[in-house]
Design a protein around this nucleic acid. Structure first.
Length: 864
RNA sequence: GGGGAAGUGGCGAAAUCGGCAGACGCAUCGGACUUAAAAUCCGAAGGCCGCAAGGCCGUGCGGGUUCGACCCCCGCCUUCCCCA
């Protein structure tokens, strides 16, 4: 008896692949490496191994890349498809502080769990290349690469505001602060300046922007990155401050509106604020600064919020006016909608032509002056609205009458001639805050000498190992936990033998993911981060797949590091990821009662097609949300695989819809995929018989001529192969699976007419999606080796051609009939047939025009 | 607030270039097989009207372009994602 029992063979094939090393990616220098084959590097964004394990949403992208990797191998590529762990970071540390377990221990437990879960999904990773960013064998090279940035002057220290929670006595990361309160405990937080390591990503802003054009990435991601980098052209203008030697420098994108600047606004953190504030204004100002410190940048710049600010009591001089001209005397205000890190931390306010300045001026009764006349037909200042568009300069001395674009360049020239300012390009992108006062991260390979200077730990003395500590809570004075590892901190500079103290900050969670694709190319190298040969062969990543959630930060940081490596001659391409693809989010149904309260899905049952709560039958509303532990709607792949088998699970993941779309998981739909694999099984195997495969597929079965049902099957197979091939171009594997289902529907009734070759080609086509059943049937067919090593089957053009065409016939764009014509029919014949087919609809009407789309459609345009 | 996506049957979805809307699957209903059930196989099915033939309406809403619009343009509405 031969029923389909996946539990009997799925783990056996997984063990076989591993034992045979079928997914090992052999690289340069390894025995058996074949350099004549083309390479393909397909990479998943590696996961942070959280304690809650994988859910079916994570698996979506992994199955997607696995399908691609398996097909590429069948096409003869050397495929690099690795997996590892982005294991440093805050959550592990947080969890450790709560439970008292060391993050090393919990991280190892979590990665073991993830590895075992991933292996059950039958993913064809080369596990010999597994990496863990929190292992010293990895992070010593993170430190080494950081040193390359450092020696190029791209790392520096600066006082920047960071979130501080007085109640918790700790520095918090941005993501730990919500609406000015700590995520844990809901305590108030403030931003206070602290010395931090910064990376000078702004030095690469122009290249990060320009090189986007060379990448095969989704346009939406490119737009988001461009937006993030935020290039803007404008001018820097110096305003002299009354009674101060230092001028205030402002940046503006609209130098043409300089004549309309009626006040200045400084960011609360601006260095000049405290110096210039008058005694009378000081109390109000102090109160304002304290309030601003507790707001996030998001709140501060939220345009919908009421504008707040306070006058400093000081005045500046607008340099476009003569000394003594009352129009040039402008008050200096402080407002939190101006950010210290953007531009110069100070703006000139032109309330007539900037919406935020307009609202601010209205709120505080400041002067509004028109300097740009709106074009005919548009509402301008004369109509009482702020005009922010382009128009004609007025009340602006030397640039009066000029159009905005011309007025801008003329103003810049005017300023430069008089040394009052200059044209400048700025970016919204800011330098990257690269240090944390936390334990679970990479230590900086830096030493502080007694004279206050900072030196690198020489490369040959790397790694700087993270000391083992039992108490790694942040200290109450905001200093880093590593500062308490006294024996570790106190050291000597190996170069000068002078006493030194180690830097006690650690790198942020992003650090390890800034180069991991390079380590995968050569993961066990103890002499270098990666060998030149390996990088030369495998780089760049051909296909990078991950969630759109990382559209900006991770991808921008990774590109930045890679460009630095390129400049340092470490890599041969200036971009790391040639093609990027974002898998969609897998959402899940959740249920809420009449009051909107969420009900866990295991408390829900279905009665008469309606969801109700189990104990009392109260009707519930089905909603779609993300999968989250807190919503109790998480589905674990282990459970699904246990019940339906791995192949059915993989097929369902791909059958749900196009890879890039977000779609709800519905376990109720899986039986359809399970039935599909069972039907595949029965196509090849008679479950009632002892034979390993049906007679018609046996090795010694008589050769069948390609005619009749066999020809029909050949054509059906050709259509399936074509559709599958196409699905790899669009990453909509749901249509490939649908095509294979259609194939089964078509050949089911004529099973006995199928040839062995047709059966084998179908299995090869199925193999990337459902590799276990493909292997099992491949073996039962008596084929030697693994289906993963057979050639990818292609459709033969001659079996895709049809003898007859069915052509829809429309009248005035409405479908009124269909005709079937021989492939060779002439246009005249087709038109004649079409007229006949829709004759009743043409009755008494005049055909004005006949539209014929070659082989596709006829449309009669009629009148009367 | 800014930025990015997406809205098609009861549900997941499909539809080369602007050319037959709803392939494939789930759930549902009917039939066959069965003592019965499960499994399997065959069939029905967007909505409305109709015994039927057939007709009308239908891709979030309102306009537009076109012989023809899920697809292109303009304006709305709703939902989801991201913000160092």
């Amino acid at each position: 008896m031969n029923p389909y029992r996946p539990q009997d063979f799925e783990s056996r094939w997984q063990a076989f692949w591993e034992a045979e090393g079928l997914h090992r990616a052999l690289g340069p220098g390894e025995p058996g490496f074949d350099p004549s084959r083309p390479k393909y590097y397909v990479l998943d964004m590696f996961p942070y191994p959280s304690g809650s394990g994988l859910h079916v949403g994570h698996a979506l992208g992994y199955v997607g890349t696995d399908v691609v990797a398996r097909k590429k191998r069948m096409e003869g590529f050397n495929v690099l498809h690795p997996m590892g762990w982005d294991a440093f970071g805050l959550p592990a540390e947080q969890y450790a502080i709560q439970t008292g377990k060391h993050p090393r221990a919990t991280t190892d437990e979590n990665t073991a769990n993830f590895r075992q879960q991933l292996k059950k999904i039958g993913l064809s990773y080369d596990w010999s290349r597994e990496i863990d960013t929190s292992h010293v064998s990895y992070y010593r090279w993170t430190q080494w690469l950081f040193a390359r940035l450092y020696e190029r002057g791209l790392a520096y220290r600066a006082e920047v505001p960071v979130w501080w929670c007085e109640e918790l006595k700790t520095v918090l990361a941005n993501e730990e602060v919500i609406n000015g309160r700590s995520e844990r405990g809901n305590h108030p937080c403030v931003r206070r300046p602290l010395k931090q390591w910064m990376l000078k990503i702004t030095a690469y802003a122009e290249r990060l922007l320009d090189d986007l054009d060379t990448l095969d990435w989704p346009e939406s991601i490119k737009i988001q990155q461009r937006e993030w980098i935020g290039r803007s052209e404008g001018a820097e203008v110096r305003f002299a401050v009354e009674g101060e030697p230092e001028p205030v420098t402002v940046f503006t994108t609209r130098p043409d509106t300089l004549w309309g600047a009626t006040f200045l606004v400084l960011a609360p953190e601006h260095a000049l604020v405290k110096r210039i504030t008058s005694a009378a204004q000081r109390p109000a100002l102090e109160a304002y600064l304290a309030a601003a410190a507790s707001k996030s940048e998001l709140d501060r710049t939220d345009a919908s919020k009421q504008k707040t600010g306070v006058f400093t009591g000081a005045y500046a001089h607008n340099p476009v006016f003569e000394k003594g001209d009352p129009r040039g005397r402008v008050p200096i205000w402080v407002a939190d909608y101006v950010l210290a890190q953007y531009g110069t931390g100070a703006i000139m306010s032109v309330p007539g032509h900037d919406q935020r300045d307009f609202e601010f001026a209205q709120a505080f009764a400041l002067e509004i002056r028109e300097v740009v006349r709106a074009p005919q037909g548009e509402k301008g200042l004369a109509d009482g609205v702020c005009f922010t568009g382009e128009g004609t300069a007025v009340n602006s001395g030397p640039i009066d009458g000029l159009a905005t674009a011309e007025a801008k360049t003329r103003t810049c020239a005017w300023l430069e001639e008089r040394s009052l300012g200059k044209a400048r390009v700025t970016y919204k992108l800011r330098d990257w805050l690269f240090s944390r006062q936390r334990y679970w991260g990479e230590p900086f390979p830096l030493l502080h000498l007694e004279d206050g200077s900072v030196v690198r730990v020489p490369d040959e003395f790397l790694p700087v190992e993270l000391p083992v500590m039992d108490d790694f809570k942040p200290a109450s004075d905001g200093s880093a936990p590593l500062a308490r590892a006294k024996d570790w901190v106190v050291t000597i500079d190996p170069r000068t033998r002078k006493p030194a103290r180690r830097d006690t900050d650690t790198m942020p969670g992003w650090a390890g993911s800034c180069w991991y694709w390079l380590r995968f190319m050569d993961p066990h190298d103890s002499k270098a981060a990666f060998s030149k040969e390996a990088e030369q062969y495998w780089g760049p990543v051909d296909l990078y797949v991950g969630g759109a959630a990382h559209a900006v930060m991770h991808l921008l940081y990774a590109r930045f590091w890679h460009k630095v490596f390129f400049d340092a001659g470490l890599v041969h391409t200036s971009e790391p990821f040639q093609k990027l693809y974002n898998q969609g989010m897998v959402t899940a149904f959740a249920y809420e009662d009449a009051t909107g309260r969420l009900i866990a899905s295991d408390e829900v049952e279905w009665q008469a097609e309606k969801p109700v709560r189990k104990p009392d039958g109260e009707p519930l509303k089905q909603i779609v949300t993300k999968m989250a532990k807190s919503l109790k709607n998480v589905v674990n792949p282990d459970d699904i695989i246990g019940e339906y088998g791995c192949d059915a699970f993989r097929l369902y993941e791909m059958f749900m819809g196009p890879l890039d779309e977000s779609k709800p998981w519905n376990t109720r739909d899986i039986p359809g995929c399970r039935r599909f694999v069972e039907r595949v099984w029965r196509l090849f195997v008679d479950p009632e018989a002892e034979a390993s495969v049906r007679e018609s597929f046996a090795r010694d079965a008589a050769e069948k001529p390609i005619e009749g049902d066999t020809l029909a099957a050949e054509r059906a197979l050709a259509r399936t192969l074509r559709k599958t091939e196409e699905s790899f171009r669009h990453f909509n594997f749901n249509t490939a699976i649908a095509a294979m289902m259609t194939f089964l529907n078509e050949v089911g009734p004529i099973q006995a007419s199928l040839t062995r070759s047709q059966g084998l080609r179908f299995l090869a086509c199925l193999a990337p999606f459902a590799p276990h059943i493909a292997e099992e049937l491949w073996q039962r067919m008596g084929e030697s080796g693994s289906v993963t090593r057979t050639a990818w089957p292609l459709a033969e053009a001659r079996y895709l051609e049809l003898d007859e065409l069915e052509i829809p016939v429309q009248v005035l764009g409405k479908l009124r009939g269909k005709i079937t014509v021989p492939k060779a029919a002439s246009r005249a014949e087709i038109e004649r047939g079409a007229r006949a087919a829709v004759a009743p609809h043409l009755e008494g009407k005049e055909v004005v025009k006949t539209i014929y789309v070659e082989g596709r459609l006829v449309n009669f345009v009629v009148r009367g």
